[in-house]
Simulated scan of single mutants.
Amino acid sequence: MRKILVIGATGSLGKVVTENLSLQYEVTGTYCHSKHDERITNIRYLKLDVTDKFDFEKLEHVYDCIVLISGAMPATMHGYQPQKYIDVNITGTLNTLEFCKKTKVRKMIFVMSFSDVAGSFYSGIPITTEQPRSLAMTGDHAVYGISKATACDLIEHYHQEYGLQTVIFRIPTVYCADDNVNYFVDGSKRTKAYVQMIRNVVQYQRIEVWGDPQNAKDMPYVKDFSRLIELAVKSKTAQGLYNAGTGSPVSLEQLVDTIIEIFGEDNSIEKVFLPEKNSQPNFTFDMSRTRAEFGFVPEYDLRRMFLDIRENVDPLVWQSGDK
């Protein structure tokens, strides 16, 4: 049985990816801060600090593939610590690549932010894998985006220099069925927008529609993403950057109507339009290269995703928070 190492196995993404891979492979998952579910007995868990190259010595030298998910990001950062992006996203990636070289790991899969093409939002043109970089050079995402782009350059170097098979998945926000309902904006904690929308529907029978209702974005579901990782583990030919969205952007209006359908008790939910508020991003990914290489087609549309979230998230989550 092939052996897979998932670095960052206990976060919202890593947990689902790790558990899915464990159905077919012998999986070791690492964590740094988040605890793992001790009821899961078919996965071996180890604590690993990716910024410390000597910490990698505790790992076995037997892995066929490494999936690097862990990383520092604005959505999980209290305050602003740019050095953390350098340490975790750049040094951590370098340490992982060095471990691959030292132990002769044949493949590495990396999860990349879509921050490298931030300048291509709102164009109405699907973003391809060949799109030139357009990193934001201001704001709290700037160093983050720079660090992730640099990590990708390091990965490409190790592919060309040492023959490591490397697969990079560029992701937008991936939606998950868990109780992790908060994130950080400019270092301050906020409730995720879709969570607040669901709470308003459930508790107050109203929902706010911010900005332009026609702005549309890719909304991939974690179960589709975990299947894409599985396909990459199996692929002998995949190499380089692949978009990991849906190719079918969801407008804010569609999102609102679907939340009302799935979480509203009837059709009397009040829609409150606030065009003066900030709109959601407007973008979609060109998924042609991903489909061609992996035969990947998302199984979860928006409605099926929210049905699955409703089924798997404790209803008490929707009963919390402010109006």
Rank of each mutant, 00 (worst) to 15 (best):
G247S: 04
G247K: 09
S248N: 15
S248T: 15
S248R: 13
S248A: 12
P249T: 02
P249M: 01
P249Q: 03
P249D: 01
P249N: 01
V250W: 03
V250N: 04
V250K: 02
S251K: 02
S251C: 02
S251P: 11
S251L: 08
S251I: 12
L252D: 07
L252R: 03
L252Y: 13
L252G: 02
L252A: 06
E253K: 14
E253M: 08
E253R: 09
E253S: 08
E253A: 07
E253Q: 14
E253G: 04
E253F: 05
E253L: 13
Q254N: 11
Q254P: 01
Q254C: 08
Q254E: 15
L255K: 03
L255D: 01
L255S: 04
L255M: 12
L255C: 05
L255H: 00
V256T: 06
V256C: 04
V256P: 06
D257T: 10
D257Q: 10
D257R: 08
D257H: 08
T258W: 09
T258D: 03
T258M: 10
T258I: 07
T258V: 12
T258S: 05
I259M: 04
I259R: 00
I259Q: 01
I259P: 01
I259D: 00
I259T: 01
I259W: 02
I259F: 06
I259A: 06
I260V: 12
I260H: 01
I260S: 00
E261Y: 11
E261V: 14
E261P: 03
E261F: 11
I262G: 02
I262F: 06
F263I: 15
F263G: 00
F263A: 01
F263W: 07
G264D: 06
G264C: 06
G264K: 03
G264H: 05
G264V: 08
G264P: 09
G264W: 03
E265H: 13
E265N: 09
E265M: 13
E265V: 15
D266S: 09
D266G: 03
D266K: 10
D266C: 03
D266T: 12
N267I: 14
S268H: 14
S268I: 13
S268R: 11
S268A: 07
I269R: 00
I269K: 01
I269N: 00
I269D: 02
E270W: 12
E270Y: 13
E270K: 11
E270N: 05
E270S: 09
K271H: 09
K271P: 08
K271L: 11
K271T: 11
K271E: 10
K271G: 04
V272F: 06
V272E: 05
V272W: 05
V272H: 07
V272L: 08
V272T: 09
V272C: 06
V272S: 05
V272Q: 04
F273L: 14
F273G: 01
L274Y: 04
L274D: 10
P275Y: 04
P275E: 10
P275N: 04
E276Y: 14
E276S: 07
E276T: 10
E276W: 14
